[in-house]
């Protein structure tokens, strides 16, 4: 089928203008966002698309295909033709945490070809302003002294905040996580943070960007950030200051990926476009307001980065028996 399609489109191209071999892209490129509008991935993608669409000669069509923690949209891209006209906004949730925690996921990391990770998003553990916990140690002590009374919220099962909280507690030597802390899943970062704000849950360890406005307004306090240096606006110790450098692996990221059979020239083109787009001032301002770090990785570095993160998470999932059945 794919060959017929190529033959037909080549035929069409030949018939119209006879360009030697029409250069990619000849039509609109569809970018699938596997999460709903308004989420961290969606905002990041839309912010990036503004400079990108001025660089790419063809229109960019952003499409939200939410569902199943990013699995629905990811599978749609995996099954698409590897012609560079259907690409995915891959995110830590869909391509690191979920694969590590859920053995029944209908896709694997090898089924995607990464074009580039362009954003790193540190994780912050936050509590509401009135919380009794002034430092991360207070929180850890409370979990140890009163097992089963401290609650944390997340944006869903197998999401970064779900895993993040457990990874932090594990680093502080808290075992039997099922019994000692209680997980309150919600639908999305916004709801997870709301649960902390209204007192349903005690803390939330997720990406800095959705938490940034609450920190800025003083409704919430950060206890810890996983970046290597202190973040502007987040007055909290880094994991290095806390003496837990292994937690530096706990970061969110966003990148662009395609089906595994994506041709080299497409990846190359995108590398150039992305390099130009991430220079854009507005884009950078938007990303840094949310505590993100704009950092474009080459395709090879991206794959290595994603795989390393996956390995670390996966080892922990196995060791702590966190797998979703």
């Amino acid at each position: 089928m794919k060959t017929t399609l190529t033959a037909l489109s080549m035929g069409a191209a030949l018939a119209t203008a006879l360009p030697a071999l029409a250069e990619y892209p000849t039509r609109a490129i569809q970018m699938i966002i596997p999460f709903g509008p308004g989420g961290a991935t969606d905002l990041s993608a839309r912010a990036l698309s503004t400079p990108l669409s001025q660089i790419i000669p063809q229109p960019l069509v952003l499409t939200n295909r939410a569902g199943a923690g990013g699995a629905t949209g990811s599978v749609a891209v995996r099954d698409a033709d590897g012609d560079g006209y259907t690409l995915l906004l891959a995110r830590v949730g869909s391509h690191t945490v979920n694969p590590a925690m859920n053995p029944n996921l209908p896709y694997t990391l090898e089924e995607f070809r990464f074009i580039g990770v362009y954003e790193i998003n540190p994780v912050a553990c936050v509590v509401r302003d009135e919380s009794e916990f002034q430092t991360l140690d207070d929180l850890i002590n409370a979990v140890q002294d009163r097992p089963g009374t401290v609650l944390y919220s997340s944006s869903g099962v197998g999401s970064l905040p779900h895993f993040g909280a457990l990874m932090v507690l594990d680093a502080y030597g808290i075992g039997d996580l099922d019994e000692n802390v209680i997980h309150i899943p919600t639908e999305g970062d916004g709801q997870g943070l709301t649960a902390v704000l209204q007192g349903t849950a005690d803390f939330f360890c997720g990406s800095t960007s959705p938490a940034a406005p609450f920190i800025a307004s003083g409704q919430m306090r950060p206890l810890m950030v996983t970046s290597s240096e202190r973040l502007e606006g987040f007055d909290a110790p880094t994991v290095h200051e806390l003496g837990k450098p292994e937690l530096a692996a706990l970061v969110g990221w966003t990148g662009i990926a395609g089906p595994a059979d994506l041709p080299d020239d497409v990846v190359e083109k995108w590398g150039e476009w992305l390099a130009e787009a991430v220079q854009d001032e507005d884009f950078n301002r938007f990303m840094t307001t949310g505590g993100s770090i704009v950092e474009l990785m080459s395709p090879e570095d991206s794959v290595k980065f994603v795989n390393d993160a996956y390995e670390i998470f996966r080892r922990l999932v196995v060791a702590l028996d966190l797998e979703i059945e």
């Binding site: 089928m1 017929t4 037909l8 489109s9 609109a28 569809q30 069509v61 952003l62 499409t63």
Partner: peptide, 16 residues
């Protein structure tokens, strides 16, 4: 839908 709303309407495999 394709030009204004930016939705990729499925094109099929015969005539694009």
């Amino acid at each position: 839908f394709t030009k204004v709303a930016g939705v990729a309407i499925p094109q099929g495999q015969i005539v694009r």
